[in-house]
Simulated scan of single mutants.
Amino acid sequence: MSITMERAHAELWRYPLKGSTGGSGITSVDLIVCNLESNDGHTGIGFSYVLGGGGEHVVQLANSMLDRFVLGQKLMPPNALWRVLMQSLNRLGRGSGYLAIAALDVAMWDLHAKCQGLPLGVSMGGTLREVPVYGSGGFGPNQDPAEAVDQALKYANAGATAVKLRFTGNASDFKRLDAVANAIPDDVGIMADLNEKCDLASALWLSNACAEYNLIWLEEPLPAKDIHGYISLASKTRVPIATGEHHQGANELLPFFEGHCCAIAQPDLAMMGGLTEILRVVILAEHFGISIAPHFLPSLFIHLAAVSPAITWVEDFPLLEPLFNKPAVMLENGMMMPSEVPGHGLSWASGAREEFKVRQ
């Protein structure tokens, strides 16, 4: 029997957060939720997102792609479908199209792995393994040092071997950094995220001042597209530089790899257009000796870690986790292990769709 796609649909959910969240201070997330079902009864769940709103256009694109290239069509392997979808953007540009493709890509990988009866990481060609988790949730750029210490100690006591602070790019960062560094155990490392707040001069000043704290990395000190600034900064600082969550496609990250100005790459599921393109980034990272620490969503990216040793960290930033039913959690040893059920193992929490689906 030829396997075809019997059902394929995307819908918009709007998920309000409890307050200003993370270094960029978002207050809501638009989710593009994709549901697939083949004529042999296998299903796939996928999602993408827009941080801060604007998902209406993305879900329209997702449904257009599903109608044109998926619904009623013979089932294609995820890589093959991704190329078809990407080619459809040839005269449109990546933009919102990549965010739409991401939802379809995740759903297709989930369905593909379920058809094989394998966990996603194994279906992708890997072997399931533990990966260390760093704690990123609950930190803010204007946070009181005592609050940052409390949050860092919660992570350390739970087993995390690193925490990531948020920086503003001025002298107030050092009070928070010093307080946390003096409070946490010596075997718990520190990262810091600037969320693109500096220019080259202030990034050099701040990174040099951070050197004595032996940061694991300094994240997005400059605007994401400032390749020349990153090359100059990396050549003058002792602190490893991380970037990647705002880049779309391997082509946008490749100059950072070739310029040796990025020690850690942090691909974002939505911006990269899904898991298929992130797999390409991971392969490039292996070639250049660059570590990969994907942007949040550890329950999903822990499967990608099965495919490549380049993935050295997953991030505990529980932005969407309340929407999932039993997502993967950090173990007492500070590691995370993927689910062994077929597919990516993620499903929606009871009542989530009814509460957050946007009625159109």
Rank of each mutant, 00 (worst) to 15 (best):
Leu71Gly: 04
Tyr98Asp: 05
Ser96Ile: 15
Leu81Gln: 07
Pro77Cys: 08
Gly53His: 08
Arg94Ala: 15
Leu66Ser: 06
Ala103His: 01
Met86Tyr: 15
His57Ala: 12
Ala100Cys: 12
Asn90Val: 13
Ile101Glu: 00
Asn79Asp: 14
Arg83Gly: 03
Ser123Met: 07
Ala62His: 03
Leu61Tyr: 01
Leu81Ala: 08
Pro77Ser: 11
Gly93Thr: 15
Ala103Trp: 00
Gly54Lys: 06
Met124Trp: 02
Gln73Gly: 03
Leu71Tyr: 08
Val70Asn: 03
Met65Lys: 09
Val50Met: 04
Gly55Thr: 03
Glu56Ile: 06
Gly72Lys: 10
Val58Gln: 00
Pro77Phe: 02
Gln87Trp: 12
Gln73Ser: 09
Met76Pro: 05
Gly53Trp: 03
Ala102Asn: 02
Arg83Leu: 12
Phe69Glu: 12
Ser123Asn: 05
Asp67Lys: 15
Met86Lys: 13
Val84Asn: 06
Leu75Gly: 03
Ala102Pro: 00
Arg91Lys: 12
Arg94Cys: 11
Ser64Phe: 11
Ala62Lys: 00
Leu118Phe: 06
Met65Val: 04
Leu89His: 10
Pro78Thr: 14
Ser64Asn: 14
Asn90Trp: 13
Leu81Cys: 08
Leu118Tyr: 06
Pro78Cys: 11
Arg83Ala: 14
Arg68Glu: 13
Asp105Leu: 09
His112Trp: 13
Val70Tyr: 00
Leu66Asn: 07
Gly52Cys: 12
Leu75Val: 15
Pro119Arg: 01
Gly126Asp: 05
Tyr98His: 11
Thr127Gln: 14
Leu71Met: 06
Leu89Lys: 07
Leu75His: 04
Asp67Cys: 07
Ser96Lys: 14
Leu104Val: 15
Arg68Trp: 08
Met108Ile: 05
Leu85Tyr: 03
Asp110Thr: 09
Ala113Ser: 10
Gly117Met: 08
Val70Arg: 00
Val58Glu: 01
Met65Ala: 14
Gly93Leu: 09
Arg91Glu: 10
Gly97Asn: 11
Leu111Asn: 01
Gly117Val: 05
Gly55Phe: 02
Thr127Val: 13
Gly55Val: 02
Leu111Ser: 02
Leu75Phe: 15
Thr127Ala: 11
Gln60Thr: 10
Ala113Cys: 07
Leu118Ala: 10
Val59Leu: 05
Phe69Ile: 05
Ser88Thr: 07
Gln87Met: 11
Gly125Lys: 07
His57Lys: 06
Gln87Leu: 09
Thr127Trp: 06
His57Tyr: 07
Ala102Ser: 15
Tyr98Pro: 01
Val106Trp: 00
Leu51Gln: 05
Lys74Asn: 09
Ala100Asp: 02
Gly54Thr: 07
Arg68Asn: 10
Arg91Val: 07
Leu120Asp: 06
Val59His: 02
Val50Trp: 00
Gly117Pro: 11
Lys74Glu: 14
Ala113Gly: 04
Ala100Val: 08
Met108Val: 04
Gly95His: 15
Arg94Asp: 10
Arg83Tyr: 11
Ile101Gln: 03
Gln60Phe: 04
Gly117Asp: 06
Ala113His: 01
Glu56Phe: 03
Ser88Leu: 09
Leu111Pro: 02
Gln87Arg: 15
Val58Tyr: 00
Gly53Tyr: 07
Trp82Gly: 01
Ile101Gly: 00
Leu111Asp: 01
Ala113Gln: 02
Ala103Tyr: 00
Gly125Leu: 04
Val58Lys: 01
Gln60His: 11
